[in-house]
Amino acid sequence: MRRGLMLSAVLLGTSLLMVAASQVMADPTMAGSEACKDCHQKEYSQYLTTSHGRAQSDGAALPEKMGCETCHGAGSAHVAAGGDTKDPGFATIQRPDKQAAAKANEICLGCHKGGEQFYWQHSAHARKDLACVGCHSIHNSKDGAHAKLLKAETTTALCLGCHKSNHLAMGKSSHMPIGTNGMGCNDCHNPHGSAGPKQIRALTTNDLCLSCHADKRGPFLWEHAPVRENCLTCHEAHSSSNDKMLVARRPFLCQRCHTPSGHPGNLYDAPRLGTSALQVVNRSCSNCHSQIHGSNSPSGKTFLR
């Protein structure tokens, strides 16, 4: 009997404490960004210089008013804790960098729904549970002008942080000018997803290549079928050990598809190199068939013209 009363008292006491605690914890309310800066002056000042800070004073087009609590959640309990980390209210503030990626991304996607992020849900990065804050830093970005709030100085450096084997690709003798001022990974790929293959910034591979190499766009009077099929039939996308980022050396590349009698079918070996055969020295097949991407010359059927 006594044991029963004691147990009941303990249960009752525990319940009352839980109710009391829940009332304390219940529904923190918005405290306003001004409340944050007393303790987080550095972060707040830095935040004001970013696009998120600007949105605080001109964000009428956003779903809700922008402020610290847009990302960190209602902060009244955290503020009330007054810096006491043992206070249960202290931990009610949200830290997107400590949250599960999907939950943290929901905060970002609340505003960043269209444009670059239109296909985010279908991206390889979303599928692999990557968090927006894995690449972007709201308070400590390293790209010089903070235009993209990146965690690295350039997009290329950021991408190579995970896609490390591309260092190997960039070390090949023939490669894209990636990493120069003129080109970065994100010029061809949209890390937030796209409707094209490999998250490219075009609907098809050829559309992407031809956006810069518009001289190969044609349509030509005399077309070369594999060019229309896919640029990657003959070229690597990032780099190769062969001239012009070809997947194989000429004449052997050409001979993968052209083998009739005469010079297209001949074996170009060391003796033929010794006799300076035009099909093997210098530009090989392209010494003559230079219009290999297609010809608009009326006599250019064999791409000599």
Binding site: R54, D58, A147, T180, G182
Partner: peptide, 22 residues
């Protein structure tokens, strides 16, 4: 050289200009 410029007002508008030579 690579040069960039942006001008913005809140989230209402943002103008980006870039000039790169390679």
């Amino acid at each position: 050289q690579g040069n960039g410029l942006y001008l913005a007002r809140g989230v209402t508008w943002r103008l980006d200009a870039q000039y790169n030579e390679t």
